[in-house]
């Protein structure tokens, strides 16, 4: 029998929750799906070893829903991957997010693990991050008497580190509804056909007009210390004619950008060439489908 050996609170609403978060003298963590936190606690991960209080947000309905309001899709922080995968709004407007979350872990994990939990941990391999980055996701952070909005990109700071303050909670993810003409794809490489930690993830959104990229957004995961957008490549690409040389060129640029960030690490020998190769293949697929 395992005991987590800490205190647990189960606030019924946001107000109760924010008051708990405002208390300074506890080292607290939010408990949502628990698929990372409970494992971390049991394995004695240094990220959780000092946690004295778990604040369980599962009873708070407001944090657990998906809405389309005006031209924004609002995903509550404790919405599970399964709920996202099976949601009509997501299916219609955010196909890359659907694809990414449907490949996370096992069904048992997806039935518990939550979207905010995925990036609040900020593991390099968090699969929902690249699609959220290319969808220009913003986060609403709330604390007692305060509310702020921050882009996901700015929120993510370093591996396992974010801009989240101790008294704050990610309450929702806000995604502008993408333009109808936008196409794209998500790619994941793991060591096994299912339930595999990502070695590489890529997300690309683009709009192709007259055989050139009118707009393109590119993000990766698991190849850089944290999930990342590649603005320089995006800017370079805009309005360029699409041909094989351009796709190769973009893929090499992606390799160079990643190399700049990571330097040569043990995994670079594999990941660097493969990310270029598969980015090239992904671009090809998108262009051909068009």
């Amino acid at each position: 029998m395992i005991n987590l050996n800490c205190k647990i609170e189960t606030p019924k609403n946001i107000d109760e929750l924010l008051k708990l978060l405002a208390v300074e003298n506890f080292n607290s963590k939010i408990l949502a799906g628990g698929t990372d936190l409970i494992v971390g606690k049991i394995q004695g991960s240094k990220r959780f070893v000092d946690t004295e209080l778990l604040i369980d947000i599962n009873k708070i309905e407001e944090l657990h829903k998906i809405d389309l309001i005006d031209d924004k899709i609002i995903i509550g922080a404790s919405t599970t991957f399964s709920e996202i995968e099976n949601n009509k709004i997501i299916n219609e407007h955010l196909p890359l997010l659907k694809k990414a979350v449907s490949k996370i872990g096992s069904l048992q994990i997806r039935n518990r693990a939550t979207i905010a939990g995925n990036f609040v941990n900020n593991a390099p391999c968090a699969d929902s991050v690249p699609p959220l980055l290319v969808y220009n996701a913003e986060l609403e952070l709330i604390s007692f008497g305060n509310k702020r909005t921050i882009s996901l990109e700015n929120f993510l700071e370093a591996p396992y580190k974010t801009q989240l303050q101790k008294s704050e909670l990610v309450s929702k993810i806000i995604i502008p509804v993408p333009d109808k003409n936008i196409i794209g794809d998500f790619y994941k490489l793991g060591r096994r056909r299912a339930v595999a930690i990502s070695r590489i993830t890529l997300a690309v959104l683009c709009r192709i007009e007259n055989n050139s990229f009118d707009d393109i957004r590119i993000a990766s995961g698991a190849v850089t210390p944290i999930g990342k957008r590649f603005y320089e490549i995006e800017n370079f690409t805009r309005e360029k004619r699409i041909n094989n040389d351009l796709l190769i060129n973009l893929s090499q640029m992606l390799g160079e950008e990643i190399l700049k960030i990571t330097g040569l690490r043990w995994s670079s020998a594999y990941k660097l060439p493969v990310v270029q190769q598969m980015f090239y293949q992904l671009l090809n697929n998108i262009v051909i489908k068009k």
Binding site: S268, L272, P273, Y280, Q281, N285
Partner: peptide, 12 residues
């Protein structure tokens, strides 16, 4: 040579 040469990109 971590950046792939052109000929290393595989015909889909």
């Amino acid at each position: 040579k971590p950046i792939l040469k052109k000929n290393k990109f595989i015909d889909p």
